[in-house]
């Protein structure tokens, strides 16, 4: 057992618990967009303003995310591109890496846009207004929307396909049949989260 193995295993675990769970919760919160500005802001603020929120976020989200990202970036460069093997799971393999890089960039932009930006500007707390104004801005609205759409698809894909590879890595799904079941489950998770999130975003589209 060496650090190579342990870091990869921790990174793999971190992708599901807690990052994946946080992603699900985060996407769930967006459903409050349909409840209007006040309730949405209350919900979000009650999460972020709770006494332990900052520490919890650092330990549960930021550190695992940082580890997962660093490991991911290392992984992306240690392989060989072999386009002649046109198998579906090989495609997923590359999409996982591509989405990983894309989502990393998106998260950086997202943290800047939705968190650090408002803090610096002093508009922290008016999440709903911030988000909807970003979406409806006549000049940059389209760009913001596109980035969000791609970011959300990427993140949801990366998570649900990650469920699939997680089950193989940890030896949860052994046989081809169970691996197939897990794969179908991951498709369902993907569809469910995508539908839910786009429904949420439709409130401010």
């Amino acid at each position: 057992m060496d650090s190579h193995f342990i870091l990869r295993r921790i990174s793999s675990l971190a992708g599901i618990v807690p990052i994946g769970l946080f992603l699900v919760y985060h996407l769930y919160m967006q459903l409050y967009l349909h409840s209007g500005a006040e309730i949405y802001n209350n919900e979000v603020n009650s999460f972020y303003d709770s006494p332990l929120a900052t520490w919890a976020l650092i330990i549960v989200v930021y550190i695992p995310l940082l580890l997962h990202s660093i490991m991911g970036v290392i992984l992306v460069f240690d392989n060989k591109i072999q386009p002649s093997y046109t198998y579906f799971s090989h495609l997923l393999y590359w999409l996982q890496r591509l989405s990983g890089i894309g989502v990393l960039l998106f998260i950086i932009a997202h943290i800047w846009n939705a968190k650090l930006g408002p803090w610096i500007e002093g508009t922290w707390g008016t999440h709903f207004e911030h988000l909807s104004s970003g979406f409806t801005d006549p000049e940059t609205g389209m760009i913001t929307k596109t980035v969000y759409v791609l970011g959300v698809i990427g993140a949801v894909f990366h998570f649900s396909n990650g469920l699939n590879t997680f089950c193989m890595t940890w030896g949860i799904a052994l046989t081809p049949t169970s691996q197939k079941r897990v794969r179908i489950f991951s498709y369902l998770v993907f569809i469910f989260l995508i539908v839910s999130t786009f429904y949420a975003l439709s409130a401010i589209w």
Partner: peptide, 30 residues
């Protein structure tokens, strides 16, 4: 832990050995 789950191995194996199953099994053992 260097396996990336691309699963090409099992597709190209001329003897149709269930390699991904073996990888998952070893994954479970470790």
């Amino acid at each position: 832990s260097d396996c990336g789950n691309a699963q090409n191995c099992v597709e190209v194996c001329p003897k149709s050995i269930p390699l991904t199953e073996s990888i998952a099994e070893i994954g479970r053992q470790v």
